[in-house]
Computed example of a mutant assay.
Amino acid sequence: MPTVLGVDGGQSGIRLKSSAQPGTVEVDGVSRLEGDTVRSVFNAIASAWKHGHFAPVDRVVLGLTTSPADAASASRLGALIGATTGAREVWIADDTVTSHAGALSAEAGVSLITGTGVGCLALKDSGESRVIDGHGYLLGDAGGGFWIGSRGVSAVLKQLDGRGETTILTERAENQFAGLNNLAARLHSVHRPVNRISQFARDVLTAAVEGDAVANAIVNDAARELFDTARVGLHWVGQDAPLALGGKLLGPNTVLFARVVELLAADGLSFRPADASALDGALLLGEGEADNIYRELIHVWKEESAS
């Protein structure tokens, strides 16, 4: 069995774990706003690799929110990672792939994973796949952390300028963002604004539990968006296919999880909590063969292909 380094790369954080040693190393994440994304992702992974004192590995499996959009960029990233880690193979995929593999133990079905963004992959036994949403914070990721956090901040700004309802989110924003003065300008200028705004999602979820009407409406809308995303995936794969729910905001015992489950139950749809994380999914994939149901979704860089 090959020694594998799994990488789970999101906008909030990038995590590394080796199959040959205990422990996980995490560094700041990367978004597509940060210039040369391939170089930024590589720099973050190289930093974590050095910090974790990892031994060389045979294969690296990357599940990235910022997965390269073309084969040339993917090969460039693979070559950089291979040179740093000693790996002769680097598998590169969108993080929906590694999330799905972890959530459903590398079996067909639908995974809905919610963190800063939203990843929903519907996969048939044949390997035929469909991604639902996951279009990024500018165009989609409806119901995810940034989506919720940005609507929470927007509600605060509306209250401040007299257009919106009174909400306890204003007090929470004052604490979270070190005051309300020039809040919009400061958030537009902050380093990694997507991550910073998405962190406010937890304040919105907490306020909803406490009965704040504005926060409650945001969370209900988020749950509806996530339910619609999952339902589309299940209708495409088949109603009897397994549906796994996971991610930081959609774990068991969260208010968002509870409300999505209510909507699924009302529609007669079953689900299960995710079996494992995206990082676990990366390791699981890497310990197997490339000829699997995910094969069309993974770019494989090999050392010999670069010579």
Results as ranks from 00 to 15, higher is better:
P56K: 13
R130D: 03
V97R: 07
A83N: 09
G238L: 13
A101K: 04
L226T: 00
G10I: 04
V214Q: 02
W236K: 02
A244W: 09
G35C: 08
G152P: 00
R163Q: 06
H235S: 14
A213Q: 12
V41L: 15
V110I: 14
L77D: 01
N253Y: 09
G211W: 15
H51Q: 15
A215R: 04
N216C: 08
P252C: 13
G233Y: 12
D275I: 06
N43E: 15
S99N: 12
V219A: 01
R151D: 00
D291R: 14
G117H: 09
I197Y: 02
L80C: 03
Q11N: 13
V237E: 06
D240W: 06
G78S: 04
S307H: 06
G78P: 02
V97Q: 10
T3N: 05
G115K: 14
P2W: 03
L138D: 08
A201V: 00
G246S: 15
R15A: 08
A71V: 13
G144C: 11
D240P: 02
A122N: 03
F227A: 05
A306W: 11
Q11C: 06
S111C: 11
S105I: 01
G238Y: 13
A230L: 09
V27F: 09
I148G: 00
L104I: 11
V204G: 00
F257M: 10
L139Q: 10
D291A: 15
A207K: 09
V41K: 00
H191S: 14
S67G: 03
L283D: 02
L160E: 08
A276L: 01
G117C: 12
V153I: 14
L283F: 11
G143P: 02
D58N: 15
G13A: 06
I45W: 03
L123T: 02
D133F: 13
L250F: 13
A276D: 12
D212Y: 11
D8P: 05
A213G: 07
G144Y: 12
A208W: 10
W147S: 05
V153Q: 03
R192C: 01
V190A: 05
L279K: 11
I218M: 02
S126Q: 10
A265T: 10
W49M: 01
L112F: 12
R259L: 14
I132R: 08
G10K: 09
S99V: 10
D36S: 04
V209G: 04
Q199F: 04
A208L: 04
G247Q: 12
F227Q: 05
P273N: 13
R231K: 15
H235P: 00
T167D: 08
H235C: 02
H135G: 03
G246F: 12
S75G: 10
A241P: 00
A71E: 13
A55V: 13
R88L: 05
R192Q: 11
R295M: 12
V60A: 07
A142L: 12
S40V: 06
G152Q: 01
S40L: 08
Q239P: 01
A201G: 02
K248N: 15
V194H: 08
L283K: 07
V153S: 03
D267V: 04
D240C: 07
A173M: 11
A290S: 13
L139N: 09
R15H: 09
S75P: 01
L80H: 04
R130Y: 07
A155T: 00
Q176S: 15
A101F: 02
A155I: 05
L169M: 12
G281M: 10
I218Q: 00
F200M: 10
H51R: 15
L160Q: 10
R196K: 07
